[in-house]
């Protein structure tokens, strides 16, 4: 409990630091918002009036507090390009990103864990070696090239899906999930390879532990030893990596959305960077950073639940 409170406090502090940095980067550094709004021909009086009305003359901490309060109330500012509230622009895109995340994480989770244990168990045999090499090759492929390959092989050559098609969730929810699937696979594949490798390493080092010998000496079968005794221990170091992956996936894959032409947050972020639409950029980036920080901290807390050895500290 004490740990939980401590962790929450430190999480909030980190969030504040990050948000302050964001504020600095996007509100202060880009230069005088009044000049960029009104153009260089504006008279000094006009600029001054604008600054006064927007509160740009207040000291930085006051502006930060106002900015932060706005964020907490769901007011992320106004897009300079679309001249509409950012919050409204984001909601559709968030749906796409979140569903893509959930789909790819499920796909990733249910393949990587059993596969990792099996690869370790048969590490000396042909199955283990081949899948190990396969994992290495998959890891060497950039996620967007995986996407391109998927489009090329399954979309264009085998015609198993229509590339670059998007179905809005309102039209057909299943169709929506279906059109996300190739992208979800492209996101999941390299992550499967990462976790399989880590889990294999973790299982291999657990294999050598004395308790494994004890389990065998009780007459337990090797499947029981691997999936009951070893897996539970081997998962402890892997939890952190799982958390990092979950965070990364939830934050959205900027590149994959681009490859599959999906209207998610990442693609919007890239186009907003192109048009220097800073209110949108800062809102999306803050979302991504916050997701990563919150999930990582939750995983740290979970870690303490999983490992009985650190429970009492």
């Amino acid at each position: 409990m004490k740990y939980f409170i401590k962790k929450t406090v430190s999480m909030i502090i980190t969030l504040l630091i990050v948000s302050f940095l964001m504020f600095l980067v996007f509100e202060i550094i880009p230069g005088d918002a009044a000049v960029s709004k009104l153009g260089t021909e504006a008279t000094p009086e006009q600029v001054e009036r604008y600054r006064e009305s927007m509160g740009l003359n207040d000291p930085v901490p006051v502006r930060y507090a106002r900015w932060l309060a706005g964020y907490l109330h769901g007011d992320f500012g106004t897009s300079t390009k679309y001249e509409r509230p950012v919050a409204g622009l984001l909601s559709d895109k968030l749906t796409v990103t979140l569903f893509l995340a959930v789909e790819s994480f499920f796909f990733f989770f249910f393949i990587s864990i059993p596969l990792g244990v099996l690869v370790a168990k048969y590490s000396g045999k042909a199955f283990g070696r081949i899948s190990h090499l396969l994992m290495q090759i998959i890891m060497a492929i950039t996620s967007f090239f995986t996407g391109i390959l998927l489009v090329f092989i399954f979309g264009i050559t085998l015609k198993m899906f229509t590339p670059y098609r998007f179905v809005a969730p309102g039209d057909s929810f299943l169709g929506f999930l279906g059109c996300l699937f190739p992208a979800a696979v492209a996101i999941a594949l390299p992550k499967i390879a990462t976790v399989v490798r880590f889990l294999k390493q973790s299982v291999t080092s657990e294999e050598r532990q004395d308790y494994v010998r004890t389990a065998y000496s009780k007459g337990a079968s090797s499947n029981r030893v691997y999936f009951l005794h070893i897996l539970k221990n081997a998962m402890i170091p892997v939890t952190t990596i799982l958390g990092m992956i979950l965070a990364e996936v939830m934050a959205g894959s900027i590149v994959i959305e681009q490859v599959f032409n999906l209207p998610g947050l990442g693609r919007f972020l890239v186009s907003s960077i192109g048009s220097r639409d800073f209110p949108v950029v800062s809102a999306i980036m803050l979302y991504m950073a916050a997701v990563v920080i919150i999930i990582n901290n939750l995983v740290d807390i979970l870690y303490h639940v999983v490992d009985p050895r650190i429970q009492n500290d």
């Binding site: 980190t14 990050v18 990364e248 934050a251 900027i254 972020l269 980036m285 950073a289 990563v292």
Partner: peptide, 9 residues
């Protein structure tokens, strides 16, 4: 806490 990609962005 930032993915390196985001930091670079």
């Amino acid at each position: 806490a930032f993915p390196s990609m985001l930091l670079a962005l």
